[in-house]
């Protein structure tokens, strides 16, 4: 099997940086009160830190930045001139993505290419090669990827999947882009017959009945369950910020003068009350229960019905980030149990 050593993986990052690629990977954040790593654009390969666990924030910022210009506009008399944003770097490589993050981007591909093809999204997706490192074990009890049809070494959304073994990684070429990366830097990879492909951590049997969840959600839009689980929610939206699959955005115009300005899109979240407020002042999702319900129903019923994929990869980040102790897996377990009671 093809393998890459720890040193060569770092070397690959160095080669890519030297060749002018943008390289993202988990790295320490100076000045943050939080320990651990985040996905960051690396300045040098030495910053790459693959041993520090799951980044607190997801990978989605690589493909959907928290803010990005859609175009710059200028008015001259009756003429309006539009200037598109600069194209992204032609080659972006993510080294050390986690399977839940890679799968999150794959879920977002469905909606970004649905009724309208989002050119900015796909320009970034097309430019990027995702090198994923499989998880050796769940990060903590918030993880539930194996319960949503994925797993610690699931290849969905990855171009190369690296499965850890002592001193390095077994390399699984998932896509043509992954094969091209290997072909471009052959000296970083070698063949080792001793290493055989295999799962890292066994994906356990699912603990929730997803079909039952989907069925129950479709029939229980109005249900006391939503009032119960929403009580502790502050509507802060931290869950959406850290979700690898949440993708809602707001579009704003920021004038530089009366005659020119920038139209931008910015991350948004359905968990805040202002998300659905109409110009009239009416808010169709008035209570917090309606917003919590929206998050669960969209991810586990509406999105899968339309796109055949869940909008959740079981990374558990929303659970880790929630300042009020909301626990998505617990909500799904509750719904799964209620589905069993009503079936």
């Amino acid at each position: 099997m093809r393998v890459i050593s720890d040193a060569d993986l770092r070397g690959l990052a160095a080669d890519l940086l030297a060749a002018g690629s943008t390289v993202w990977g988990p790295a320490r954040v100076p000045g943050s009160p939080r320990p651990g790593v985040e996905y960051r654009p690396l300045r040098e390969a030495a910053e790459l830190d693959l041993g520090a666990g799951l980044p607190f924030l997801p990978l989605k910022q690589v493909f959907l930045p928290p803010t990005e210009p859609l175009f710059w506009w200028e008015r001259k008399g009756t003429e309006v001139r539009l200037v598109p944003p600069a194209p992204p770097n032609r080659r972006v490589v993510v080294i050390g993505a986690r399977p839940c993050d890679a799968a999150g981007a794959d879920a977002m591909d469905r909606v970004m290419g649905w009724d309208y093809r989002d050119e900015l999204w796909f320009a970034r997706r097309d430019a990027a090669t995702v090198v994923t490192v499989a998880c050796e074990r769940p990060a903590d009890e918030a993880c539930f990827c194996s319960d949503v049809g994925l797993g610690p070494s699931h290849p969905r959304g990855s171009d190369l999947l690296l499965i850890p073994h002592p001193g390095g990684y077994a390399v699984e070429e998932v896509t043509a882009k992954g094969r091209e990366l290997v072909a471009a830097f052959p000296h970083r990879f070698r063949e080792d017959e001793q290493v055989t492909p295999g799962e890292t951590a066994a994906a356990g049997p699912p603990r929730i009945d997803l079909a039952g969840v989907q069925r129950w959600l479709a029939d229980h839009f109005e249900d006391e369950t939503w009032n119960e689980v929403a009580l502790r929610c502050h509507g802060c939206g931290a869950c959406a910020s850290v979700c690898p699959a949440c993708h809602c955005f707001d579009i704003v115009d920021e004038p530089d003068s009366l005659l020119a300005g920038t139209r931008r899109r910015n991350w948004d979240s359905c968990q805040t009350s202002r998300f659905t407020v109409h110009a009239s002042g009416h808010n169709p999702r008035e209570g917090q229960h309606a917003r919590v319900r929206q998050r669960v129903v969209h991810k586990f019923q509406v999105f899968p019905r339309r796109f055949g994929r869940l909008l959740c990869t079981g990374c558990g980040r929303c659970t880790r980030a929630c300042p009020a102790g909301q626990d998505l897996f617990e909500i799904l377990t509750l719904v799964s149990e209620r589905a069993l009671e009503t079936s």
């Binding site: 943050s32 802060c236 931290a238 959406a240």
Partner: peptide, 16 residues
């Protein structure tokens, strides 16, 4: 500057 650069304007600070 580097701290504020990380802000994604989710307003979780305000909501809580």
């Amino acid at each position: 500057s580097s701290a504020f650069e990380r802000c994604v304007r989710c307003y979780a600070c305000r909501e809580i």
